[in-house]
Design a protein around this nucleic acid. Structure first.
Lengths: 223, 223
DNA sequence: GCCGTTTTGTTCTCCCGTTCACAAACTCCT
DNA sequence: AGGAGTTTGTGAACGGGAGAACAAAACGGC
């Protein structure tokens, strides 16, 4: 037990983990273009990062390149996919089928990248007749049953902000251990549950800040 | 020119800029609850960050608190809003009115946070008859005219991946200097143009990675 | 007016992530 | 077979952000 070295479970820096999906996408693009081999320089350009950073990132996974040659696109693609865990299919449940939930349910990028939406839930009974992306919108009360039935560990929250925390609590109670939150609110979850958030308006505000600075800098030159 | 100290234009760290909108939202929430004063500890808890980090972040903006007392909610809220630049209204144009573009156009969080969607554009003529969120979907060819008319500097891309780069190029040519990209592709833009990306499936893949590690760790205990 | 209490603003230290630079290793050509 | 040319993998330097800890400042009670 002490000297055990799990196959690939040494600790990969969080910043690297966040970039692996980008590399995966870049490799998929290269493969579709018929490229079979690529250098770190090429792949880095495609992924929009520094080549040294790319090589260091990949070195955390193992030594999958060949010096003087580069990387085999298909082989590296598989290795990264395996490392991230998207060689298997992850069942996902989406809660809150408003405009955004609708879009997420229809988003083809999930399916093609190892995620399968198994259920759409909404608290509003008026929506329970709807069929979205080939799935019937079901009652939020069915959450526990669905999580158990499909062994769901990832939940997506696309509800209004006020409902998000209670939805998260129910998800955690039902056994979900990873949450992607689109509601504009801070979620708290117990130890062991991962929460990531995507906030549409925060991104715009960050852009606005820089935009404002550009304007200020411009007027300074004039004055 | 040398000894000039612009009002509030000293360089704020990028990490801090990314958190300011979170503080802004937390303060808005506190204000709605009737809170007039709060300590860094309270605000930090609401925003989900460390209180030391919060104080350091705020110190980059200036000295807006009172020792022994805390911060005036309304005053601090205004100061942050001014720093970010959301006291004014930013006109925004959205290109690509599919499922996601639809959701973005209807997202009330933009309007309430200083952004005004002035136009919805799509390359598909079949969509030009649609009215979404009170706005008629117009031809992508109208981009330049709209940007000029409304003095738009922020563009949102919600097109399929293949179209994103050409849309971005057209946006830049039309005078847009900040782009929020929802298409799953790496965009290149000239110096001086800010590009931020929101990638729905990347977030899920990051969750999947950690989820997989949880599973592996669990099976190790058993073995 | 003075002292204890509270809370901010800031300094210092540590850690993570990025980048540079180079040795190791592989291919190709002669 | 050997040398020139590439390209990976990594050690080391560097920069920035996170958190702890503390000094400065404001308030309240006596």
């Amino acid at each position: 037990m002490t000297a055990r070295t799990p196959d690939s479970a040494r600790d990969i820096p969080e910043a690297t983990v966040a970039r692996l999906p980008v590399y995966l996408r870049a490799l998929t693009g290269l493969a579709e273009d018929g490229t079979t081999t690529c250098s770190s320089e090429e792949l880095a350009a495609t992924a929009g990062v520094n080549s040294a950073k790319l090589r260091k990132d990949l070195s955390y996974l193992g030594s999958y390149g060949t010096r003087g040659v580069g990387y085999d696109v298909e082989y590296l693609r598989y290795q990264i996919a395996r490392e991230i865990g998207v060689t298997q299919d992850w069942p996902v449940v989406i809660v809150g089928i408003g405009n955004l939930g609708h879009a997420l349910a229809n988003y083809s990028g999930f399916r093609s990248r190892g995620f399968r939406v198994v259920a759409l839930l909404d608290a509003d009974p008026d929506r329970h007749t709807d069929v979205v992306a080939g799935l019937e919108v079901r009652s939020f009360e069915d959450l526990e049953a669905i999580v158990t039935e499909h062994d769901v560990s990832i939940g997506v929250i696309a509800t209004p902000a006020v409902a998000a925390q209670s939805v998260a609590d129910r998800m955690v109670a039902a056994g979900i251990t990873s949450i992607l939150n689109f509601a504009p609110t801070v979620l708290t979850a117990p130890e062991g549950v991962d929460v990531r958030k995507v906030d549409l308006s925060i991104e715009l505000q960050i852009l606005a800040y820089h935009e404002q600075r550009k304007a200020v800098a411009g007027s300074e030159d004039v004055s």
